[in-house]
Amino acid sequence: MSSSASEMRFGMVIDVDKCTGCGACSVACMSENNVGVLPDETDKIRSITWLRVYQIDNGQPYPNTQIAFFPRPCQHCAGSQGHHTPCVSVCPATATDRDPKTGIVSQIPTRCIGCRYCVAACPYHARYFNWYDVPWPEGMDKPLSPFVAPRMRGVVEKCTFCFHRYQRAQNKAFTSGEAMGEMDYQTACTEACPSGAITFGDLNNPEHKVHELKKSPYAFRLLERLHTDTAVYYVSAREWVRRQADNYLSGEKLAKVQAGGGH
């Protein structure tokens, strides 16, 4: 890959108004990344869902109730205003880092010592600790993807924007000699979404759809005022949805902290 190309920043634009909450993205993510099924999956504060779909509502009583869904992958923060990525800077063992080339925050389970400091640092709850040994019953290990290493007990894992797919796309580009196209690298959740709510690409590349989509007047990011500088944008025409993305004092105007287009 030519290093003269401008820095990439892979990211998503998720249209909240298009999301039906079907959960196909979560399932696709789990099977793509060898996320195991725990003995007790009802224990939701311990189960592992790299891409979790939150259901939110406008707090109004019936019949004015409205609901919406926030699919939440790892936000792949860059950190702004002098801050690092919240989780990367705290890891004592350098098990996680942010790749300046792609803007993707990595997590290396075989390096992780399981101190969970990064879990505490992440406000999005995008990081998951393996509280259990993942049981792969006889035969269940057969459909595991060889591109993603299964994790062991006692380490933290999280969404990687399917980085192995980036590696595969890069291999193809190396051997064919052609530059990597937008469609060569797409995450599993993006491909699985039946309503096309998730768009994935290089936020810095004007040829990628996300570059335009993130400029929508309805685009926003989660917890913008903490200056985490995330790579996941959301779009919703409904103001109450946009308001749910950040904390506001009662009476505080949404527009005051609205990020609007770029960053």
């Binding site: 350098t94 098990a95 996680t96 880092d97 942010r98 790749d99 300046p100 080339k101 792609t102 993707i104 990595s106 290396i108 075989t110 390096r111 591109f147 993603v148 290493a149 990687t160 980085f163 192995h164 590696q167």
Partner: peptide, 9 residues
């Protein structure tokens, strides 16, 4: 000098 992900999965 690359990020960890370049050689780890």
């Amino acid at each position: 000098r690359d990020a960890c992900f370049v050689c780890h999965k």
